Computed example of a mutant assay.
Amino acid sequence: MNIDVSSLDLNLVKLIAALIKFKTTKAAADQLGMSQASVSRNLAKANQAFGAPLFVRGSHGMSPTALAFKLAAVEQAMLAPLQFALEDYFEFEPQQFIGELIIAIDPYIMEEQSPRMVTSLRHHLPQAQLKFILWNKHSLAELYAGAFDYCVLDQDMSLPQDVFMQPLYAEHASIIAKNQHPVLSQDFNWQQLTELPLVLLPAPNKAEPYTLVEQAYLDQGIQPRIAFTTHSLTAACRYLTESNAIMFGSSSTARQFSGLQQYPLPQTSLKLPDFRVFGGCLQTRRNQPKYAYLHQVMQDCFNPVGH
Rank of each mutant, 00 (worst) to 15 (best):
4 D>L: 07
6 S>E: 12
15 L>P: 05
16 I>L: 03
16 I>E: 01
18 A>E: 07
20 I>R: 05
22 F>D: 09
28 A>I: 01
30 D>L: 13
31 Q>R: 12
32 L>P: 04
51 G>A: 08
53 P>S: 06
70 K>E: 10
77 A>M: 09
79 L>D: 10
79 L>K: 07
80 A>K: 00
85 A>G: 05
90 F>S: 11
90 F>C: 04
93 E>Q: 11
93 E>F: 04
95 Q>P: 01
96 Q>K: 09
103 I>R: 05
106 D>W: 09
114 S>C: 09
116 R>Q: 07
117 M>K: 02
122 R>F: 03
127 Q>T: 02
134 L>A: 13
138 H>P: 00
141 A>Q: 15
143 L>S: 08
145 A>S: 08
148 F>E: 13
154 D>H: 06
165 M>G: 00
166 Q>A: 13
168 L>Q: 04
169 Y>A: 15
174 S>Q: 13
174 S>W: 04
180 Q>P: 01
180 Q>W: 01
181 H>V: 02
185 S>Y: 02
189 N>C: 12
193 L>R: 04
193 L>D: 03
195 E>P: 02
203 A>D: 14
204 P>A: 14
209 P>V: 11
212 L>G: 00
213 V>M: 13
217 Y>F: 15
219 D>C: 09
219 D>F: 02
220 Q>N: 11
229 T>E: 15
230 T>I: 00
232 S>G: 06
236 A>T: 00
242 E>H: 13
246 I>T: 09
251 S>R: 15
251 S>M: 13
254 A>L: 05
259 G>M: 14
264 P>L: 04
265 L>N: 03
272 L>V: 04
273 P>H: 08
274 D>Q: 04
274 D>K: 05
287 N>R: 10
290 K>Q: 03
290 K>F: 02
301 C>I: 11
